[in-house]
Simulated assay, not measured.
Amino acid sequence: MDFFSTFNPLYSVSGFFVGMLVGVTGVGGGSLMTPLLVLLFGVHPVTAVGTDLLYAAVTKSAGTLVHGRNKTIDWKVVARLAAGSLPAAAVTLWFVSGIDRHDITAVATITIALGYMLILTAVLLIFRRRIIEKIRHLMRDRRPVQPSTVATMTIVLGLTLGVLVTLTSVGAGALGVTVLLALYPSLHVREIVGSDIVHAVPLTLAAGMGYWVIGEVDWSMLVTLLVGSIPGIVIGSHLSPRMPDRLVSAMLAITLALVGTKLVFA
């Protein structure tokens, strides 16, 4: 079966709108694309996750080039995150490869995990500032945090992201940025976001290739999604400065919460 016989233009249309939202809000495509594939197109959850991981690797590579050119990457943070996330991704892939991925229990587990991650992303979008202030306040009330402790906590964050992203394709952006902002108050937000995006590229690429090895990537669907999403991201990035940030974030958070709830309680 060749590419053109399986080409579905609706994937490109969906990719365009998801890409535009990613460009406007900065929220990772996994939070939007994976549930869209599962709920709207009926794609098997494991295949949706595997395909979306490679989709994220490609789209975030463009962001890596931009942040590299602008010198908004802290490579020390990237290395610490990767030290935890890549081994965790490998272990998670080993686990996924050893189960019957079409078993009802396995499908339900991945779907519910995806739903909870979407709800968590929605909460972080709305309450990120308060959560960061609370964490920093707790850290100030204790003894000064040693650099070695911050390094260890960053590796643990990477490990957590490795498991969650490999299992659901969601979490690298919302959860990663929130915790990093609390751990590294001296870094500018642009450096935190840049470092998080750069770290997401090898993580999603490694996890996505792992899903390909076990046969859970739909290449035709991936290419069709990218055909729409790349111009969508470009347009969204240009629209972003003109859009009311709080309104867009609130609408996106409500959407993710509703979709997440549907996945959990379906």
Rank of each mutant, 00 (worst) to 15 (best):
K134V: 11
I132Q: 00
I131D: 05
V96C: 00
R130W: 01
S85F: 04
W75T: 14
L175K: 05
R136K: 15
L167E: 04
A182I: 00
A151F: 00
P185Y: 08
G158Y: 12
A106W: 04
D52W: 03
K60V: 13
T72W: 00
D52G: 09
T178F: 05
I112F: 06
V66H: 14
H188M: 15
V170C: 01
S148C: 04
A174H: 02
V96P: 00
A79I: 07
V78M: 08
V77Q: 11
A172D: 07
A182M: 03
I135S: 09
G98L: 04
L187I: 09
V145C: 07
G84R: 00
G176C: 09
K134A: 13
T166E: 00
V145M: 14
T160N: 11
D52S: 13
P185S: 08
W75V: 08
V156E: 05
T59E: 05
T59G: 12
P185M: 03
I135V: 15
H188I: 13
G158D: 10
L114Y: 01
A57M: 11
L65E: 05
L157Y: 03
T72V: 08
A79C: 07
L183K: 00
R140Q: 15
V58K: 13
T72L: 12
L124H: 09
T59I: 11
L65R: 11
L93C: 05
T154N: 02
L175P: 01
T109S: 09
M139D: 13
V150I: 14
K134M: 14
A90H: 02
R142K: 14
V91H: 09
A108L: 13
A106L: 07
M117W: 02
V49R: 04
G84Y: 02
Y55I: 05
G171C: 10
A57H: 07
L81S: 01
A90Y: 09
L181H: 02
R69V: 12
A56Y: 04
T152P: 05
A90K: 05
R130I: 05
L86V: 13
I99M: 04
